[in-house]
Design a protein around this nucleic acid. Structure first.
Lengths: 338, 338
DNA sequence: CTGAAAGCGCTAACAG
DNA sequence: CTGTTAGCGCTTTCAG
């Protein structure tokens, strides 16, 4: 019994009448133990309600069973789903998950320090935003790391959603509907380059369409409202591709408040396929990002790095276009009349 | 240097030309160290990039700096915000946070076992649903615990949002608008009793209004659609109070699909004030639950329990009514005409 | 104030 | 197969 009142491995050994290492052996399965003793040990464990101490184990075996997730946010849809995917995959493999939130780049140092103090098998960094990007640079080189999403990292295992391909496809779809060009409302990018913006621009260029100036929104869905109003005031605007569904909802509201209709006057598309996108009026055309799978894949890559079975270091998932009613062919003359 | 390539406390001691315990003293501040040696030690720590091992510390000092959060889900709005609140408060106090997701009651044992294996200062249980409730019962008695939300627990520190009071107030507001009664669509309750349902029923009873049968939805917003259609088919329905905003959105969609309008034909209110509630058409009347504050309060209570400064064991926050356009006075005759 | 010695709970070599 | 002997990296006695 230790000070906290928990039984220790030597309590179990004493009760079972065996040595401490024998108990350890049945616990870890590292070596064969005679059925008789194994039974004795198992009974003692059950009787005492014994539970091994992860701290002691990690200290001596140097095989920690904990991974850390570093994320800039935990409540936005994409983050939350990704974390959930990692958690589920990790638990299935016997790993515990620790989460560190880094809301601003300033906090990165302190947060990383606190995290790295723990005995960690590896780290997953959610690289959707600048704090995440900053965090990735601070991880000591000997610790296995996987980056989730964001811009491709040369020397790091990484699982990504191919946002550029999806944005390209979505933009192409809008152009195919007959729109002369597509405006883009961007969410805060993690770096200068941003997959969604890249794909959008690529599709416009390929089609020889005009490339309108980029419009920046914040993560707050409400920031889309004034943008929607401004867009509605410009008769050249007939199709808008937004960096995520929440912003698209804000933009749609702004457009509606300005007296125009979606999609009759302006088509609006989002990105992510938030669970509410389907319920919106009109239901939102978007690209579905499977964040939970991203998380699972990411954990798998991390596990490869931890175990040295480092066959694959990259995983790419392609978001899938979801066509709903918020986008349609432009109605010539309609906009002018409004 | 240990096997992982990290410097250890004895590397620091050697470099600074002092003993290991002296390094420990400057690290913990447990005892006074002469300024000269302190400086030497600090320089050595900086040079080596030394970082103490939480595992070794927890093992010997038995004052772990980690708390665990046990949650049934991490991606639904309320959970995610609560977790964020806990995380921020914990980090400010030097604690690291570990998250365990328990998606079904069956997984509780395994998940709790894995978690309790870690050196933990305390546990916060998000008791919004059955897995959370089940988890609370499994925490060993000597470990400090705080329950967040849910039904009042007699022997546990607990931070709650007074859902019953808010539901009562919201129902009363709807009745005050002139509705003969209010229907309630419930989200899956954590137990038999559920604050929102209780408050709704209490307000109806006090007003002498009819208490319509309870309608059950799942957590999936889409589950509200058929419910909305069914409600629209019943001419007695003029006001609906939904267990959360997502369900309210589903219900509104169902009502709209049935050809009725909100709030002209039927008023709909939600609960939580999801960031998208304000952007919905029409903007949703709801009760704002401040989950981040709930999380912060909960951590404070846990810290009290950990430190034995156990003055307050309960904290109650009252959700605030947010009146928007999805609710209005009933228009007599309108429903019949539709 | 500071070093030496003793362990925290566990696993990793070793002998047998 | 199993017990003995050593530590993991750190903090806590306890003498000085």
């Amino acid at each position: 019994m230790n000070r906290a009142g928990n039984p220790t491995i030597s309590d179990v050994a004493a009760r079972a009448g065996v040595s401490v290492p024998t108990v350890s052996r049945v616990l870890t399965g590292a070596a064969r133990v005679s059925p008789a003793k194994r039974e004795l040990v198992e009974a003692a464990i059950a009787d005492l309600g014994y539970r091994p101490s992860a701290a002691a184990r990690a200290l001596v075996s140097r095989k920690p069973q904990t991974i850390a997730i570093i994320a800039g946010n935990t409540s936005r849809y994409g983050y939350a789903e990704t974390i959930r995917g990692i958690e589920i995959a990790a638990r299935a493999e016997g790993y515990t998950v620790m989460i560190t939130v880094v809301e601003s780049a300033d906090e990165v140092d302190q947060a990383i320090e606190a995290t790295l103090t723990q005995p960690l098998a590896g780290v997953a960094v959610l690289k959707f935003d600048p704090p995440g990007v900053a965090a990735l640079g601070k991880i000591p080189p000997h610790l296995p790391v996987v980056a989730l999403s964001g811009v491709r990292e040369p020397n790091t295992a990484q699982a990504v959603l191919d946002e550029a391909a999806a944005a390209d496809e979505l933009t192409e779809y809008l152009l195919g509907l007959g729109h002369a060009t597509v405006h883009h409302v961007r969410v805060p990018p993690s770096r200068k380059v941003d997959g969604r913006t890249t794909g959008w621009r690529r599709a416009l260029r390929r089609a020889g369409a005009d490339i309108p100036p980029l419009i920046d929104a914040t993560w707050d869905p409400k920031s889309g409202i004034p943008i929607g109003r401004a867009l509605a005031a410009d008769p050249a605007v007939t199709a808008v591709f937004c960096g995520n569904d929440e912003i698209a909802m804000g933009v749609m509201r702004g457009i509606t408040e300005a007296g125009l209709r979606v999609p009759d006057d302006i088509s609006v598309a989002g990105f992510d396929d938030n669970p509410l996108a389907e319920l919106w009026s009109p239901p939102l055309t978007t690209a579905r990002q499977d964040f939970a799978t991203l998380g699972r894949r990411g954990f798998q890559l991390l596990l490869n790095a931890v175990n040295g079975t480092d066959d694959r270091r990259h995983s790419t998932e392609r978001p899938k276009l979801i066509l709903r009613e918020s986008t349609a062919a432009p109605h010539p003359g309609r906009r002018a009349a409004a």
